[in-house]
Design a binder for these strands. Structure first.
Lengths: 213, 213
DNA sequence: TTATGAATCACTCTTTTGGGTGATGAAGGC
DNA sequence: GCCTTCATCACCCAAAAGAGTGATTCATAA
């Protein structure tokens, strides 16, 4: 019927979501399932083994996250197109995914039809972006001109989320307490907040750091 | 083939998850789809209109949350069994869902087969509980004998998550700063933590308070 | 009735935070 | 070569947070 079906690899760690996606795609004409994977390492292996046209990729995965999967698969010669499909619309995730060369970014609250269309669009070379995601990127560009947290700042932030005091952070990161304070000041400025409690809330909301308890 | 299929209503606000579940259930023998709903109010209406045997219910829904759906549907005479299926394993959610009479509680990382089995178990009168969920409940009973936060403490906690200082909290809640400090001390004791940053992280993780930004 | 727990507040004291300023070396872009 | 960013640290200082203790009112449960 469809001479050249689009071969899709589904990567998601939640079995229900993964199987749900597979069940949705299975009966969609013009789309063929190349395989599925439940974690980052399996995803890289599957991309290389099955050479899909499009990879439906969740960002939060065990072992390797979505961005790492893209980078690793590319490094090993894959030419698959990556369509990020995630629950999270955290600014940082979007930014990183697009920077790593994701062809499209969809939130999991799209309808199946929108998903099918996005897959076809990616295949045609288009770059589907959720309107809400696009809006968020614009808003981000507006509100937060250029305030990406540095790696070190993220490490400090991670400690803050654990409830560590400045001294404790200094000890775990082998810094002086003064340096920790400086980092925290910068974090406050970049997140536009004034207390560590608020910084923690923002960090968790935006998904800048993960829960660790 | 199956003389008395189990009629299942699927309630989830994410279209992909909802349609994924529908696609999974559609081809499972012995299970029939009674309908689906994407928000709390539609869910109550659908429960009453379609009288399903089992309702697969997400907890976080627009308009009415899952617990409210259960209560409201029951109040209007529904005898459906509710199987909570959610991404979140926050203690509070579980507690509330079970208190409201959910027959079972599954996390979304179960496999389709486990899901099917859980649906059949609920139908037979069983009460499937994720092992991890059960463990969590036990751990909760162990670690936190009786440390529910009071209403007032939750209000204070909500302010803390917004990054409010003690003085700001005192102003918004019409308290003295000393009282706020007392509440916060009690909150720390009940959450077994020592700093407001940690309290904020715990509160958000357990779903004691919602993001508000 | 007594006990218990929630909510309210005061007072003291120490520690922690957070702001401000300034400085230095290393890395990378133009 | 210059400029920027990052990471590192120091010093000062005011404000906020947190621990500890004690006390009152009120409602509810034993």
């Amino acid at each position: 019927m469809h001479p050249n079906p689009i071969r899709v690899l589904v990567v998601d760690d939640h079995p229900i979501v993964r199987h749900g996606l597979l069940a949705l795609l299975r009966y969609e004409p013009g789309i063929e399932i190349a395989g599925d994977a439940a974690d980052g390492e399996a995803a890289v292996a599957a991309v290389l083994a099955t050479t899909p046209d499009v990879v439906l990729l969740d960002l939060r995965l065990p072992y390797l996250n979505g961005v790492e999967v893209m980078i690793k698969a590319r490094a090993q010669g894959s030419t698959a197109r990556f369509l990020v499909l995630t629950t999270y619309d955290s600014d940082d995730d979007i930014q990183r995914a697009l920077a790593a060369g994701a062809q499209g970014y969809l939130l999991k609250d799209v309808s199946p039809d929108e998903l099918f269309n996005a897959i076809r669009a990616v295949m045609r070379g288009g770059a589907p972006l959720e309107p809400s995601v696009a809006a968020r990127l614009l808003a981000r560009a507006h509100d937060h001109p250029n305030d990406e947290l540095s790696v070190r700042e993220l490490e400090v932030l991670q400690c803050m989320v654990r409830g560590d005091s400045n001294r404790a952070i200094a000890l775990t990161l082998h810094l002086s307490e003064n340096t920790v304070k400086t980092h925290i000041s910068h974090i406050f400025a970049k997140l536009s907040c004034q207390s560590r409690a608020e910084a923690v809330a923002i960090a968790l909301q935006r998904g800048l750091v993960q829960f660790s308890m």
